[in-house]
Design a protein around this nucleic acid. Structure first.
Lengths: 245, 245
DNA sequence: ACCTGAACACCGTTCAAGT
DNA sequence: ACCTGAACACCGTTCAAGT
């Protein structure tokens, strides 16, 4: 458990210079929660830690949010906004639908994994905020223009997001486990799997260096899955094109 | 919060007739934990609930498991065993690699979703038990025989499992949320998204009935993703075949 | 040898009391 | 109007005491 650095980012839009211990506001609480949720130690987002970060009593948060769930929804919206912002300069017409989807998915994953303790709470939630609805419209539109029917485009959008958020939540949840537990998991691949008898486990033994590598690099596994999924989308589009001719 | 029915399955292998309040054993505790983890109410697996199910003091579990993590690992192994058992009658040579992988992934998902409170704890863990290692060997072998190189087969195996477990963990986590919170999420699609202005959100409006449907049916989304992923694997195999000729 | 029950350091949340 | 701090019903875990 390392001490979490109290590095709150400058507020977007608000005229800066917010002091610690200043009067609480939803904005200040959201910033503090994002900061607590990104702590290296990897422990959960709690009212106690949040109060410490704010320099206030833990229960003071209840003056601004009805309960923890309302805070989680506000944090989810913030991460959606941040994800959108990171790809807003990328034009799907220029880079192509495939590369654009890759970047959208990767930026969602990156934003979430920067705050694992928030990610485990946010990944499964729907906010229906402007940032989210605009993003959904955009994704379906791009898939439609790529050659899919509108409803099929919507299906692929949903699949892509569930796939991205699901795998990201799993990575975040693992990162929050105690260090000893994580090491145990690494050892399973570098020791147990590496020492399996070659006669019974020929395929495992031949690929175990790569498997151990992938076990330490969830991002690589995610990109592999993402690329394979997009290959499948491409195949679907090609099939429609062939049938339409 | 509904009362969880104390329906423990008959122990596999053991000569049946175990009584409640009998002397505790790892087996009895595992069965009780699986039962608690499958409760409809959707609340977490805790020592308190486990003790009630066993008719013993909650802390009695510590006589048989070092801590909760050791229990979780034992439960993970049980679910892996159960998943393997459900497909052991299916021969990949007969149904084809694609259909076999579909069934493997679907049975893992089904077994986990029957015990959501266990699934959220188990999905990210590696046990390195015989059931798991044998399963890994089998999966890589099947993908290799389908036409992939051994290392590439291992990569696809890993991707398929992370994809399956990640999406399943997300569904399980959502199922554990309080009922009001889940309803809120449903309403986001049937109300907020359904009422978005058509001029700004033409693609959403055209597909919103299907999106609302998918939102209530995570299994359908999973199957869509799985099929699209397997299409991508197929494309990869075709490409290798063409290059090899 | 195994189980019990008090205790501890945490969780989220409520509410009366402060300013 | 907003914050504090005691209190409550929970968490996992430890440990002395029981049988």
């Amino acid at each position: 458990m390392k001490a979490s650095a109290a590095t709150s980012q400058p507020a977007s839009g608000a005229a800066g210079g917010r002091r610690r211990r200043a009067t609480l506001s939803r904005e200040a609480i959201i910033e503090a929660a994002l900061s607590v949720g990104s702590s290296e130690g990897g422990s959960a987002l709690t009212f106690s830690r949040l109060g410490k970060e704010l320099g206030a009593d833990p229960t003071a948060v209840y003056r601004h949010f009805r309960d923890k769930d309302e805070l989680v929804l506000a944090l989810t919206n913030r991460m959606v906004e941040e994800s959108v912002k990171r790809v807003q300069g990328v034009d799907p017409a220029r880079v192509g639908w495939r590369e654009w989807l890759r970047r959208v998915a990767s930026s969602v994953r990156a934003v979430y994994l920067e705050r694992p303790a928030v990610a485990v709470l946010a990944a499964t939630r729907t906010t229906a905020t402007p940032a989210e609805t605009a993003s959904v419209e955009r994704l379906i539109a791009v898939l439609h223009h790529a050659g899919l029917g509108v409803v099929e485009a919507a299906e692929i959008y949903r699949g892509l997001l569930d796939l991205t958020l699901g795998m990201t939540q799993a990575t975040a949840a693992f990162a929050l486990l105690p260090a000893e537990v994580q090491e145990q998991d690494v050892k399973a691949w570098t020791v147990t799997y590496a020492m399996l008898p070659e006669s019974e486990f020929p395929h495992v033994r031949q690929s175990v260096p790569r498997l151990a590598e992938l076990n330490r690099d969830d991002d690589a596994v995610f990109e592999l899955v993402l690329d394979t999924f997009l290959d499948g989308v491409q195949a679907r589009i090609d099939r429609l094109g062939a049938a339409g001719r």
